[in-house]
């Protein structure tokens, strides 16, 4: 009986993981259907308005394919992704850490709240102007603008996560004499991550929008700059193609990278909801 047990466990884990992946893929059908509906609506509107104002989806996709095929699009997408991810990574690192620390102290979180409101209220375009003055044209401006726009979202997520930690679980940690590092890894972090992850995901979406805006006004390369060029040529098809490239790369990162990681990290939630 005993030697069979690890093998059984492994098998159970494996079937569990397979099942989860299957569920995930199957849940994709709903999304594909709604994207299909959206494309249909787009196509109908384009038919009414004429191709000069709104190109048809197929035309935009064909244009994108052409841009990809002649090697024009990839470098621009890579530059934009690099800037967005650099700013995003900075705000994830600094925002999560500071938010966590702020949440540990009542005074710090009370002090931080109005500052965060201020940061959230400041329009990104104002930051962009400041960044242009400080960093000039180049990577610094878009990276800084993305960082400063994403920072408050992540900071608030981390702070609320720590603040909302159940007082009962803190008592438990003391009663069982958990050393400080275990309080962090076994009690605080698993709880905080459930607040942090949604914040990271909305910050990622934010970073993709902000980076294009910053590029449009401050740089010579990247998707934003390419959009500025296609606009000046009155090339709606190319503009649409770039927008599709932008949204497509964001969706790819969110659904192929973040969503599976989220499911992995929060597996206990999944089990909880499926069993009750």
């Amino acid at each position: 009986m005993r030697p069979a047990r690890p093998a059984q466990r492994l098998l159970r884990h494996a079937t569990g993981a397979l099942g989860a992946t299957g569920n995930y893929l199957w849940s994709g059908w709903g999304s594909i259907a709604s994207i299909g509906l959206f494309l249909a609506a787009w196509d109908m509107t384009a038919g009414h308005l004429g191709e000069l104002i709104l190109p048809r989806p197929l035309e935009a996709l064909a244009r994108l394919q052409q841009l990809l095929a002649d090697g024009q699009a990839w470098p621009e997408i890579a530059v934009t992704a690099r800037r967005a991810l650099a700013g995003f990574a900075l705000s994830v690192g600094i925002g999560s850490l500071l938010g966590l620390l702020a949440g540990l102290s009542v005074t710090a979180s009370m002090t931080a709240r109005p500052l965060v409101t201020l940061l959230v209220g400041m329009p990104p375009i104002a930051w962009l102007i400041l960044a242009l003055l400080w960093f000039g044209a180049g990577d610094g401006t878009p990276v800084f603008t993305v960082f400063i726009a994403c920072f408050p979202i992540i900071f608030v997520g981390a702070m609320q996560g720590t603040r909302s930690l159940d007082g009962q679980l803190r008592e438990l940690a003391r009663a069982f004499r958990l050393p400080p590092w275990m309080r962090l890894t076994d009690v605080i972090l698993p709880h905080v991550v459930s607040y942090l992850f949604p914040a990271w995901i909305s910050a990622l979406g934010m970073s993709w929008k902000i980076v294009v805006m910053a590029e449009l006004l401050s740089t010579e390369d990247g998707i934003g700059a390419a959009l500025a060029v296609s606009r000046s040529h009155l090339d709606t098809a190319a503009s649409m193609a770039w927008i599709v490239a932008l949204v497509g790369s964001l969706l790819a990162i969110e659904y192929l990278l973040l969503e599976p990681v989220k499911r992995r990290v929060e597996s206990w939630r999944e089990f909880a909801s499926s069993s009750s």
Binding site: Q168, L169, E171, L172, A175, F176, D186, V187, P190, H191, W268, A272
Partner: peptide, 14 residues
């Protein structure tokens, strides 16, 4: 010394 509470207080993620 250790303590048992009225609620089980198990960590939900373990």
């Amino acid at each position: 010394s250790t303590m048992m509470f009225q609620q089980p207080r198990l960590l939900p993620w373990k």
